[in-house]
Every structure is written in structure tokens, then in C-alpha cells.
Design a protein around this nucleic acid. Sequence first.
DNA 1: CTGAAAGCGCTTACAG
DNA 2: CTGAAAGCGCTTACAG
Lengths: 326, 326
Amino acid sequence: MPGITSADVARESGVSRTTVSYVLTGRHGVSISEETRRRVHETAARLGYAPSAAARALRTGRSDLVLCILPDWPVGPVIETLLDQLADGLSGRGLSVLVHHGRGTRPLSDLWRAVTPRAVIGFAPFADEDLLAMRRAGIQVLGTLGEEHRPDAGLPAESQLEIGALQVRHLAARGHRRFGYAWPTDERLGIFARDRLLGVRRACAELALPEPVVQPVGLEVLDAATAVRRFLELGVTAVTAYNDDVALAVLAGLRAEQLSCPDDCAVVGVDDVPAARLAAPPLTTVSQSIGVQARYLAALVLADLDGAEKPAHPGHGLQLVERESA
Amino acid sequence: MPGITSADVARESGVSRTTVSYVLTGRHGVSISEETRRRVHETAARLGYAPSAAARALRTGRSDLVLCILPDWPVGPVIETLLDQLADGLSGRGLSVLVHHGRGTRPLSDLWRAVTPRAVIGFAPFADEDLLAMRRAGIQVLGTLGEEHRPDAGLPAESQLEIGALQVRHLAARGHRRFGYAWPTDERLGIFARDRLLGVRRACAELALPEPVVQPVGLEVLDAATAVRRFLELGVTAVTAYNDDVALAVLAGLRAEQLSCPDDCAVVGVDDVPAARLAAPPLTTVSQSIGVQARYLAALVLADLDGAEKPAHPGHGLQLVERESA
DNA sequence: CTGAAAGCGCTTACAG
DNA sequence: CTGAAAGCGCTTACAG
């Protein structure tokens, strides 16, 4: 029992496959009697017919899939939520979101060729040749970092810069002058960390503050304690962390060193993960309003689908969530 | 420039499409001169040829994709790591892992028909009709909860039961007799929480301990504090939490109530997320050895691919990670 | 308003 | 050792 085809539906309904296709794809312009329409729909439902996506993709060169390419590290709850909301925004238009975690040695081209997606959304930059190949194949290619972002050309992502700047401005407003930057030990994160740190550097420069002290901070209490000691030795009074995970480690390091936060050292993270508000002390952090981002991405995909013009960029929607750690 | 087809490669190499196909799919049994082989490979590489997956899927009825269906809530770092490792294990055999977050209103059948996957792996139970339809279409269907798991038939998942039991046994060995169960407020988690709690209940019964006190615990300090107060009023001295997120909330609740952990109340979580070791105090938790699970899943998929017999189940590989909270 | 026919790009018996 | 041909299931001009 391999499956019902449109030919089966046509035979059962006493019409041609053409008519079945017209009825089922809701083709406009062609008028088909209401009676025929009804019969075709009814038969299709009764037989449990679902069109072969492979055949449709082969014929039209396009599927109803949106492929999201994640980098090869655990992305955390924020991106997960973004993906969920993106899927929500797209499902109403018959589009399904499929996610690929960038692991495995398989070339990217195998993947998008296998999926024939309507659009590809990259959560980290694509290699130029991949980008070109996808565009050439008529696939809409989007990135969450903004199109201007070309790390190979040395161009940082605006939103990442802004994150670092927000952290600094909040702390500077509270009188801090000497900053530490808690750099993630996972090397794969460097691509984002670089831009966030750059944002911190620039903000410090603008405020005529000294350069931040950069220190790698592992996600272990002992590692973090070592880093914290080093920070304080160098006169740091406030730490901007790469993200909440790293910030949580700094908090743990401070506790291990019997230091109090924010009195001995203030800390601000990035992401506002659920654990942030449960930390000791509750973590001040920068949240990226993912609802806005998700809607914007969905709108971009749909605009392309409709041949409409691109929606305006909603801004980065960053927000400082003040709790007790800074 | 729509794309290079096998016909292009054939023409350029001066052979037929048949030969191109034979060479490129590495077909055994058919002998083709080494010289021809070389020429075809060279031409394909030079032209940047990659076969159309849609055409191949239509012809063979199968793709090189493994589709993972996640439930519609954020799954957290543990599942993310599992997916990464699964992709690693499968990529060597030319299989790519694609993930669908179970959001959106689109029916599951649209999805697997669009992807024509080699295998589908469910991280939450499938509806019976979906299961049947996929099997009928010749797709290998696997679940991370074990095949015996049929919640609609009231059958709990072994591994989930065992998690709860492990938590209780650890605490009972430390002299605790009256347990609280920190139940997640996110209703979508109920399907797992139910089985874990059942494991706790059974373990209590076996040890002739009183029934656990179940209390929903939100991921906010105030919610958690309320729950903690209630637990202690009822004489609870140790809390088994649904997972580390909930356990972190309990810890925050204890701090808010000026209570000490583990002296006033011990806590044990599930998952061993990175934040667990950074908690105050560091969280004792049950870790699910995902490396083992990932390898087992990969082996299952590959065994089916090769027509080999199923690998033996490696056991649940649960482990209690003792830190300071219990 | 509806049907016969071509063709998307591949794989695979089948025939030489 | 290699090629001509069929066919996977669909969509879509084109012809009635």
C-alpha cells in the first residue's frame, strides 16, 4: 500500500488529474463547477490523499519548507523560542520550519538540495560560495544577523555591538569605571563574542573609560573563581559577560571567593534565560526581544513569497532587564 | 542558471546518463572502466554537479534525511546535545538530521510527506494514525521513549520511572523520609512529569515511605517561595524536582525564605544542565547519559538502513551526580 | 468548464 | 562495458 496518488483521486471522482490538481491547489482564474470541486475534495479526504512533495518539488522546483541552519553549538532557550515563534508565524501560510544543527561533516549543499526549501535562514554567517549557490538556485537566503553582516569582510553585526554597548552604559550609569569582559571558553562562540566585546570596547572608548579587561571564564566554579580573582586584582568592579551562562559562572565564582554581588563586583549577562531570574543574586541582563525578531523574519519570508516589498527592519529591540546583580 | 543536471555531466564526459548515475552512486556489480569513472567524477566536480534530491526522492521514494520531531516546548541543552551527537553519528553514512519543533498548526503528515525521510524519530509520542501512516509509507519510525511507551494505553516510559526512583533512593539513603515533588507549571511538560512522579511514588511505596507531596513550582522566585513554604509546612525535608530548571527555582525559593539547602531542605534535579553546577548550592541531579542514547538511536537507524538486526538496548544510562544540594 | 500530454531529473531493468 | 527508454507523481501550458 504505497500511497494514494492524484490519479486515484481523479479516477474515483470521475475527472482528470488536471482537474484534481486545479481544485486541490486552489487555482484561481480557472472556473470549475462547485459540484466538481466538492466531489474532488470529498474523494481526496476519503482516500486520505496527500500530494507527493517530492513530485511537486521536482515539478515546481520549490517546496513548502523553510530551512533554518543553526551553528554547531547548543543555542539555548532564546533561539529555541525564536524558532517556535517563527514556525507559528509561517504555519498559517502553509510553510513548515525545519531546523538543521550545523553538526556533522556533510556539506551544506547536500542539505538544501535535499530539502529544496522555499527559504533558508542562517543563524550564523554562510560561506560565500554557499550563499551564491543558494541564490543561484532561486532560494531566498536570510540571516538573523542582518544582511550587512559579513565577518569575512571584517564587518561586525550591528545588533551584537549594541548588546555590548548596552551592558556598558548600564554599568557606567551606576558609577563603574573599570570593566571586565567574561569571554566564553567555547571557541565556537568566538564569532559572536568578538562583536559583543567590540561593542563593549567602543562604548568604553566613547565614555572615555579604560579598556575592558578580557578574561576567559569556563562554566565550572573553580575556573570562574580564578577568573574572578584575576578581575579583582586588576581593579575591575563590574563584569560584562558574553551571555547569561557565563554570567552565572561569574556569580558562582564570586560566591566561591566569598565576595558579594553587586557590592564587590557587579555582573550583567545577555539573553535573560529562565535561570537568570533564579540566580543568586537575580541576574541583570540584556534581553533580545525575540517576538519582534521572529515576526520580522516571518514577514521577510512571506513578503518574498508574495512578491511584496520587504518589511521595514524593526530595530534590534534590545532591552536591559534590571535585577540585583548590577 | 538553474542548475547542473546529470545530463550535463553525461554530455561533458561523453557518456550516457546511465553511466553517470552508476559512477556517482557508486553502484556495485556493474563494472565501468577506471578511466570512465575518473572522467565522470572529474567532470561532476568541475561542473559543481549535485543530484536533485527531489528527483531522487521521487524515483526511489526515499531521501537521505532523518527527521526528528520535537515536542512544542523548549527542549533544553540536553536534547540539543543529543541531536548534535545523533547528527554526528549519522553524517558518516550520508544521512542528514533535520529537526522540527512541534509548533505550528500544520499536520504532521504534511511534514513527513514533504521531507520523505529515511527515518522519523519522535521525542514525544505520535498519534496512532500518524504512526500508522508513516509505517505504511515505509518510513522507519523510532521514539526516544522506547517502543513499549504508549501513553494513550496508560503505559509509562521505563526511563522516566527510573529517573524518579533514582531521586528517591538517593535521598532515602541520606535519611529523608518525607518527600515533596516539584511539579512543572508548564502544562505541556505533564506528559513526562506524570511518569517521573509515578516513579517517585512507586519508589516511596517500595521503601514504605509516605506518599510524596506534590506542589506546582513556577520559574519565578515568588512562586517558588510559596511552594517551598507549603512543602516545609507539610513536613517535607527533601524535594525531588521535575528537572533542573524547576530545581533551580526551588533553590531560589529556599534562599528567598532564608532557608538553607540541604540542611532545611534537600533538592535533587534532573538533566545536569550547565547551570546545575553553578547553582547555589551546586545542584545534585540525575543525568541521562546522552552519548549512549545518541549512539543507540544512530545505530537503530543504520541497522534498518543495512537491513541488519537491531542493536541491543544499552539501558537508560541514568546516573546520579552528587553535588551539595542533597 | 475539462482533458491529453509534456516534462521536472533521476534510477534502473533491459538490451546490446 | 555502455546506452535507449520507462516511469516515479505532480503541474501547467495548450487544445478543445
